[in-house]
């Protein structure tokens, strides 16, 4: 089980590296989405590993609510790009 956890952490390191080295904002958003999912799954795995309900509830709530924030951020960034490229005032 510890070995599985280390492998999950390795998988988490890939999008973090990607977010560090890429300059496009949408690639960073992709990495962020990936990291948000992976961290909440890690929380769930640890909750099962320790047999701890409390951490599991936190993981599920982060999983279901964190994605909503991600969508909000994507829409805000899209509006910003739109206005910046068009140069119009609204």
């Amino acid at each position: 089980m510890n070995l599985i956890l280390i492998a999950l952490l390795l998988a988490l390191l890939i999008p973090i590296y990607e977010a560090w080295q890429d300059d496009d904002i949408w690639q960073k958003m992709l990495a962020f989405a990936s990291i948000a999912t992976k961290t909440s799954i890690l929380t769930l795995v640890i909750s099962v590993l320790r047999d701890d309900w409390m951490i599991g509830v936190v993981g599920v709530i982060i999983l279901s609510v964190g994605n909503a924030g991600l969508m909000l951020l994507a829409h805000l960034l899209r509006r910003m790009n739109y206005i910046g490229n068009e140069g119009t005032y609204d």
């Binding site: 958003m29 999912t37 599920v60 279901s64 994605n67 991600l70 969508m71 994507a74 899209r78």
Partner: peptide
């Protein structure tokens, strides 16, 4: 509950990100 929210939110997020990134680009 985790499986359900994962299946629903992640597919929706995929669509939203694709829509936002392509219309921005």
């Amino acid at each position: 509950l985790a499986i359900l929210s994962l299946a629903i939110w992640n597919t929706m997020l995929g669509y939203v990100l694709a829509y936002c990134s392509s219309s921005g680009g």
